[in-house]
Design a protein around this nucleic acid. Sequence first.
DNA 1: TCGGTCGGTTCGATGACTGAACCTGGGTCC
DNA 2: GGACCCAGGTTCAGTCATCGAACCGACCGA
Lengths: 177, 177
Amino acid sequence: MALGKDYAQQQCSIARALEIVGERWTLLLVRDAFYGVRRYSDFLAHLGVPRAVLAARLQALVDAGVLDRRRYQESPPRDEYVLTGRGLALWPVLWALGAWGRAEVPGSLPMRHFHHADCGTELDPRGICPVCRVPVDPADVEMRPGAGLDPDPADPVGRALLAPRRLLTPLDPAATS
Amino acid sequence: MALGKDYAQQQCSIARALEIVGERWTLLLVRDAFYGVRRYSDFLAHLGVPRAVLAARLQALVDAGVLDRRRYQESPPRDEYVLTGRGLALWPVLWALGAWGRAEVPGSLPMRHFHHADCGTELDPRGICPVCRVPVDPADVEMRPGAGLDPDPADPVGRALLAPRRLLTPLDPAATS
DNA sequence: TCGGTCGGTTCGATGACTGAACCTGGGTCC
DNA sequence: GGACCCAGGTTCAGTCATCGAACCGACCGA
């Protein structure tokens, strides 16, 4: 967690994972990357994280091989941050956290629903399509808004994420201007 | 994460889960609880966390309903912290994090192996027994030391956790004295 | 030339974490 | 009774991360 002292003497793969994704905001950044957010200004608008923290986290995730920073336009130079294979492998972690939050944090309507894009069925708490009986890859997940979601969020990214959309498809730049 | 500002405007069950288990040390506490650690002094010895932080995290987890604090001896009064149902439901989160750490954090031997106690088979990365083809409950998991584990840890709790053992069985108090 | 956008960096203030010391209630030993 | 130890904290000063706001430089369009 990038404090002066790390989890050094922890002989444990969980601790090693938390060294990379355990800091404040980091997993929410990765979640937004799955939702299709790729640009610095969009992360900033959607998360409300201080700019300095956002820049540090993005750099740390790039260094750890979770995100890839790539140039998508030359003039003016603009980069976007895209999940690598290692980042995509975090999907089970996010799914497990989300399932736990939905099931165990009391008092709320579901925020979002996740469906198997191939057949339209809502995924079960283990991330499996009950009809096709397979664990669904995030690229095959369609996200739909739930009853608990604020229908008119203040930030443009939140508004763009109100529409049903497939995970990992980039946000439309026009929608977040 | 118990900072001045929380993830309040995040309309997301992942953010709500991270509000509870996203702080530094918290998930390692829960991991140790699955390993069988229950007493304040054992958490302290095994994690090396500052005492004030440990007390605050344990209290927060009790308040969140993840741990249950219960008296196990009256004289002198001693309490232990045991996972509740809500805490046990965090198993998929820890498993997913550990699987990611094993697979994606480079350069290390496996620290521990997890086997289905009923049949002895090692679990696959999804936490499923390949022979019985069922997701294995943590109470049915046997943990065995791996090649990457320090064979002579400094703290007595680490030594007690070297032996093969079933998850959730309490540590022998005599072994950690 | 003027203003605006994007992607940062810098800065002071605030708050969390750290390590060490201290405290309390209850043993045990002699 | 007195000395000492232990488990489970609390308190405290110092350090470090985070926060919010301001600033900056490259580029664009009018």
